[in-house]
Amino acid sequence: MNAAQDLHSSPHLNSASNPLWMDGLRIVLGLFLFAKGLMFLEHNSDVFYVFSNSQNLVSMEKATLFTSVVHIIGGLMIAVGCLTRFSLLCQFPILLGAMLIVNPQRGVHLGNTELWLSILVTGLLLFFMIVGPGRYSVDNKILRPRQPELEE
Protein backbone atom coordinates (compact mmCIF):
# COMPACT_ATOMS: atom_id res chain seq x y z
CA MET A 1 0.00 0.00 0.00
CA ASN A 2 1.45 3.36 -0.96
CA ALA A 3 1.20 6.59 1.03
CA ALA A 4 -1.69 8.00 -1.06
CA GLN A 5 -3.84 4.91 -0.42
CA ASP A 6 -2.97 5.01 3.27
CA LEU A 7 -3.97 8.68 3.46
CA HIS A 8 -7.40 8.06 1.90
CA SER A 9 -8.17 4.89 3.84
CA SER A 10 -7.28 6.19 7.30
CA PRO A 11 -10.36 6.06 9.54
CA HIS A 12 -9.23 9.16 11.46
CA LEU A 13 -9.47 11.53 8.49
CA ASN A 14 -13.24 11.49 8.04
CA SER A 15 -16.00 12.74 10.27
CA ALA A 16 -17.34 9.22 10.92
CA SER A 17 -14.68 8.90 13.60
CA ASN A 18 -15.81 12.02 15.47
CA PRO A 19 -16.86 11.44 19.09
CA LEU A 20 -20.55 11.13 19.87
CA TRP A 21 -20.69 14.47 21.75
CA MET A 22 -19.88 16.25 18.46
CA ASP A 23 -22.99 14.74 16.87
CA GLY A 24 -25.04 15.88 19.83
CA LEU A 25 -23.59 19.39 19.61
CA ARG A 26 -24.34 19.53 15.85
CA ILE A 27 -27.93 18.46 16.49
CA VAL A 28 -28.36 21.08 19.24
CA LEU A 29 -26.88 23.76 16.96
CA GLY A 30 -29.26 22.82 14.14
CA LEU A 31 -32.29 22.82 16.44
CA PHE A 32 -31.23 26.18 17.89
CA LEU A 33 -31.01 27.72 14.40
CA PHE A 34 -34.40 26.19 13.53
CA ALA A 35 -35.96 27.70 16.67
CA LYS A 36 -34.29 31.05 15.98
CA GLY A 37 -35.82 31.04 12.48
CA LEU A 38 -39.26 30.40 13.96
CA MET A 39 -38.70 33.21 16.44
CA PHE A 40 -37.87 35.60 13.59
CA LEU A 41 -41.20 34.72 11.97
CA GLU A 42 -43.12 35.22 15.22
CA HIS A 43 -41.40 38.47 16.19
CA ASN A 44 -40.88 40.03 12.79
CA SER A 45 -41.96 43.47 14.05
CA ASP A 46 -38.91 43.47 16.37
CA VAL A 47 -36.68 42.49 13.45
CA PHE A 48 -38.28 45.24 11.34
CA TYR A 49 -37.42 47.78 14.05
CA VAL A 50 -33.77 46.70 14.16
CA PHE A 51 -33.43 46.76 10.36
CA SER A 52 -35.37 50.04 9.98
CA ASN A 53 -32.37 52.27 10.61
CA SER A 54 -30.54 51.23 7.46
CA GLN A 55 -33.03 49.73 4.98
CA ASN A 56 -36.32 50.48 3.31
CA LEU A 57 -39.51 48.56 4.13
CA VAL A 58 -39.49 46.22 1.10
CA SER A 59 -35.93 45.03 1.68
CA MET A 60 -36.63 44.61 5.42
CA GLU A 61 -39.53 42.29 4.67
CA LYS A 62 -37.37 40.25 2.28
CA ALA A 63 -34.46 40.15 4.73
CA THR A 64 -36.67 38.90 7.56
CA LEU A 65 -38.26 36.22 5.40
CA PHE A 66 -34.90 35.18 3.93
CA THR A 67 -33.30 35.00 7.40
CA SER A 68 -36.17 32.91 8.75
CA VAL A 69 -36.21 30.48 5.83
CA VAL A 70 -32.45 29.98 5.86
CA HIS A 71 -32.42 29.38 9.62
CA ILE A 72 -35.41 27.01 9.52
CA ILE A 73 -34.35 24.88 6.55
CA GLY A 74 -30.62 25.12 7.26
CA GLY A 75 -31.13 24.35 10.95
CA LEU A 76 -33.06 21.19 10.17
CA MET A 77 -30.45 20.14 7.61
CA ILE A 78 -27.66 20.69 10.13
CA ALA A 79 -29.56 18.77 12.82
CA VAL A 80 -29.97 15.69 10.61
CA GLY A 81 -26.58 16.15 8.96
CA CYS A 82 -27.81 16.48 5.37
CA LEU A 83 -25.53 18.57 3.14
CA THR A 84 -24.12 19.83 6.41
CA ARG A 85 -21.22 21.94 5.17
CA PHE A 86 -23.41 23.65 2.56
CA SER A 87 -26.06 24.36 5.22
CA LEU A 88 -23.41 25.75 7.56
CA LEU A 89 -22.05 27.94 4.78
CA CYS A 90 -25.52 29.41 4.15
CA GLN A 91 -25.74 30.49 7.80
CA PHE A 92 -22.53 32.57 7.74
CA PRO A 93 -23.86 35.73 6.02
CA ILE A 94 -26.76 35.95 8.46
CA LEU A 95 -24.58 35.52 11.54
CA LEU A 96 -21.92 37.89 10.24
CA GLY A 97 -24.65 40.47 9.67
CA ALA A 98 -25.92 39.89 13.19
CA MET A 99 -22.43 40.26 14.67
CA LEU A 100 -21.30 43.26 12.62
CA ILE A 101 -24.50 45.25 11.96
CA VAL A 102 -27.42 44.36 14.22
CA ASN A 103 -25.91 43.49 17.61
CA PRO A 104 -23.34 46.35 17.83
CA GLN A 105 -26.29 48.80 17.62
CA ARG A 106 -27.24 47.54 21.08
CA GLY A 107 -23.71 48.16 22.33
CA VAL A 108 -20.65 45.97 22.69
CA HIS A 109 -20.65 44.98 26.36
CA LEU A 110 -21.07 41.87 28.48
CA GLY A 111 -24.81 42.46 28.89
CA ASN A 112 -25.44 42.14 25.14
CA THR A 113 -26.13 38.41 25.20
CA GLU A 114 -27.32 38.34 21.57
CA LEU A 115 -23.88 39.49 20.41
CA TRP A 116 -22.10 36.82 22.46
CA LEU A 117 -24.59 34.20 21.28
CA SER A 118 -23.95 35.20 17.66
CA ILE A 119 -20.19 34.91 18.23
CA LEU A 120 -20.62 31.47 19.84
CA VAL A 121 -22.86 30.17 17.03
CA THR A 122 -20.44 31.50 14.38
CA GLY A 123 -17.62 29.69 16.16
CA LEU A 124 -19.65 26.46 16.15
CA LEU A 125 -20.37 26.91 12.44
CA LEU A 126 -16.62 27.20 11.78
CA PHE A 127 -15.95 24.20 14.02
CA PHE A 128 -18.37 21.95 12.12
CA MET A 129 -17.13 23.24 8.74
CA ILE A 130 -13.73 21.86 9.75
CA VAL A 131 -14.62 18.61 11.55
CA GLY A 132 -17.60 17.59 9.38
CA PRO A 133 -21.05 16.27 10.19
CA GLY A 134 -20.12 13.21 12.26
CA ARG A 135 -21.06 9.56 12.21
CA TYR A 136 -24.80 9.95 12.90
CA SER A 137 -25.65 12.09 9.90
CA VAL A 138 -27.29 11.65 6.51
CA ASP A 139 -24.02 12.76 4.94
CA ASN A 140 -22.15 9.87 6.56
CA LYS A 141 -24.82 7.17 6.27
CA ILE A 142 -26.10 7.83 2.75
CA LEU A 143 -24.11 10.44 0.84
CA ARG A 144 -20.53 9.42 1.66
CA PRO A 145 -19.22 6.77 -0.73
CA ARG A 146 -18.05 3.61 0.98
CA GLN A 147 -14.48 2.51 0.51
CA PRO A 148 -14.05 -1.12 -0.58
CA GLU A 149 -12.31 -3.29 1.97
CA LEU A 150 -8.62 -3.58 1.16
CA GLU A 151 -7.10 -7.03 1.04
CA GLU A 152 -3.85 -7.54 2.86
Score class of each variant (00 low, 15 high):
Ile72Ala: 01
Met39Thr: 01
Leu100Lys: 06
Val50Phe: 13
Lys62Val: 14
Leu57Tyr: 07
Gly107Phe: 06
Leu95Val: 03
Gly123Lys: 01
Arg85Ser: 13
Met39Ser: 07
Gln55Pro: 05
Arg106Gln: 10
Glu61Ser: 14
Gly132Asp: 01
Leu57Val: 14
Ser45Ile: 08
Ile72Arg: 03
Phe127Ile: 13
Leu83Pro: 13
Leu124Ser: 08
Thr64Asn: 14
Asn53Ser: 12
Ala98Asp: 13
Gly81Phe: 07
Ser59Glu: 04
Val69Glu: 00
Ile78Trp: 13
Leu115Arg: 03
Lys141Cys: 03
Thr64Pro: 06
Gly132Arg: 00
Arg106Trp: 14
Leu95Asp: 09
Leu83Ile: 14
Cys82Glu: 05
Val102Cys: 06
Gly132Asn: 00
Pro145Thr: 07
His71Gly: 00
Ser52Ile: 04
Lys36Tyr: 06
Arg106Thr: 01
Val102His: 12
Thr113Asn: 02
Leu33Arg: 00
Phe86Gln: 08
Leu33Met: 10
Pro104Thr: 02
Gln91Lys: 02
Ser87Trp: 07
Met39Trp: 08
Met60Thr: 02
Ser68Gln: 04
Pro133Lys: 00
Gln147Asn: 10
Glu61Trp: 09
Arg135Ile: 01
Ser52Glu: 10
Ser59Pro: 00
Asn44Tyr: 11
Val102Gly: 07
Leu96Arg: 02
Leu89Pro: 00
Leu126Gln: 01
Ile72Pro: 03
His43Ser: 08
Leu76Arg: 06
Glu42His: 05
Pro104Gln: 05
Ile130Pro: 01
Ala63Trp: 01
Leu120Tyr: 12
Lys62Trp: 13
Tyr49Val: 11
Pro104Tyr: 00
Leu126Glu: 01
Phe48Arg: 09
Val70Met: 14
Val121Ser: 03
Tyr136Lys: 00
Phe40Ser: 04
Phe127Asn: 08
Leu89Glu: 05
Ser59Phe: 07
Thr67His: 03
Arg144Ala: 11
Arg135Phe: 12
Pro93Trp: 14
Met77Asn: 04
Glu61Leu: 13
Leu124Val: 03
